[in-house]
Design a protein around this nucleic acid. Sequence first.
DNA 1: TCAATAGGGGAAAAATTTATCCCTACGTGA
DNA 2: TCACGTAGGGATAAATTTTTCCCCTATTGA
Lengths: 122, 122
Amino acid sequence: MYERKILPNLNCGLDLIGEVLYGKWKIRLLWFINEGHKRPSELQRKIPDATRRVLNIQLKELEEHELVIRKIYPVVPPKVEYSLTEFGKTLVPVITALGNWGDENEERLRKVILQRLNPENH
Amino acid sequence: MYERKILPNLNCGLDLIGEVLYGKWKIRLLWFINEGHKRPSELQRKIPDATRRVLNIQLKELEEHELVIRKIYPVVPPKVEYSLTEFGKTLVPVITALGNWGDENEERLRKVILQRLNPENH
DNA sequence: TCAATAGGGGAAAAATTTATCCCTACGTGA
DNA sequence: TCACGTAGGGATAAATTTTTCCCCTATTGA
């Protein structure tokens, strides 16, 4: 595993939440787990743009940060289910607020984001 | 400037807000600008762990995403002031929600984050 | 003249995160 | 036997972000 060389800042609430939510797919993972998509393969189907590998890595971080729990059923073929911890559940309203703002401003956001990506379309 | 090779996903609200808020210092920049710290040098003093360079880069992105405006006063020595656009102001409650969650769970977050950074302290 | 403050940016290195590729294990159904 | 589904991980490459270093303009004060 990669070992950080620069320690993160943990000064304020924004630093702290950033530390656990920063990761390309983490918020979406929490979201889908909250919606009831618990198994790794389900999550991978829900987030097809991410590879299995990254999802596993980010799920493990979420688990280490105590936002999700991983339950392993000793059956064959293997079965694993993730769910939000009580702590993780307290994040749901925050994620909802993020998603709502994005949805409410969808058009404008899409415009400014694409504008910045393709500066030629002045 | 770096040019992306992989296009971002812009499917849902979470993708969209992620695209404009992703960046190590962006949320803090918005926060301090909202609090009235408008000049680049003030922001640099407020966020001493970031270099001038990154702050400039991220401020420019925030500007291109229409979350902040940059006003240049034609005086010597130069004077520049950032402020939130109306659009940017609509993000304030969302950022507040993030910061509050982090503040409310400060102890626990600090614990789990440090635990993961130094696994030897089992 | 030198240092400090104000604002900025290019180039390259370093850090960090994601993606790619390949491998393990077991059981089921064709 | 072969392919597929389930779950997961190591090694390495590629992408992306952030840092470092250096340079420019102009004024003020020591």
